[in-house]
Amino acid sequence: MIPRPRPERFRLRRTMMFMNAQKPGLIKDAYIYGCDSIMLDLEDAVAENQKDAARFSLYHALKTIDYGDTEVIVRINGLDTPHWQEDIRVCVAGGADGIRIAKCESAQDVKTVEAAVEAAEEEFGVEKGRTLLMAALESPKGILNAYEICSASERLFGVAISGGDFRKCMQTSFQPDGVDMLAARGQMLLAARAAGVQCFDTVFTDLDNEEGFRAEVLQNKAMGFDGKSLINPKQIRLVHQVFAPTRKEVLQAEKIVRAYQEQSAAGVGVFTVDGKMIDIAFIPGAERTLRLAKACGMYEGDLVK
């Protein structure tokens, strides 16, 4: 039995890789690929008549396999199915770090799941508040209610858009320039930032289209996403490369944080670094850059954990 540390609500989540919870060959060594999080799927990847079997596999995988620093999230079945309550019981009993709510459309959906998670924590003697939540927005209604969803729970660490279902609802299809989901991605990012939670982009399903994948990841980074959902280990490296800060950004961030610490100790609120005005508003961004740099092996200092 592998005890997992208490999950961190805000940690680095550049890559979140989907894995079918029903396939023992996949989940037994999911952690070796080096993604930040794995997403064990009880929903679409599992056939309707194997939902029960997937839970037994999931429970023992969670209890037996050492996933190390890789975060373990489970995607549960939608609230309109007969499966989600038992899904939540097994996630909490097995000690999953977090639960992804599929097809989330309102703050009430988050609260419904939260209540069931709390009941399960009670039932299985798990520390109250340990199990984190994230919401997948898959419909226009979910996108329009993004802000209330993002601010619905203290357990919620972020939201993700799910492209397949969303494009269907919008009567569109994948476009190389991302125009099909531009408004939805933008709205979700605004809501997530306003609520102070993380924001993740959808999967890119055409594994042979490397150029298209690169273009989408670059756009994700430019728009301000925290990370991306993936369907294949070979997609991990590129996302980590694109999301890594540049050498120059790291040096700049280090200077800013160091100068801020010195200046604020001396009672100064606004000052300049390399001729640019800096005040407290720049610090969270600079610290985020340093944390990212640390995860990428580009920074070894002690200004951030």
Partner: peptide, 28 residues
């Protein structure tokens, strides 16, 4: 199969044979 997979398969088959595999499993 790993031990954990074997256990999962045996348990699932037994619960299915009793028509009890879908809910209220005594996890833990």
């Amino acid at each position: 199969a790993l031990d954990c997979t074997l256990k999962a398969r045996v348990e699932c088959a037994v619960y299915r044979s009793c028509g009890a595999s879908a809910a209220n499993i005594p996890w833990g």
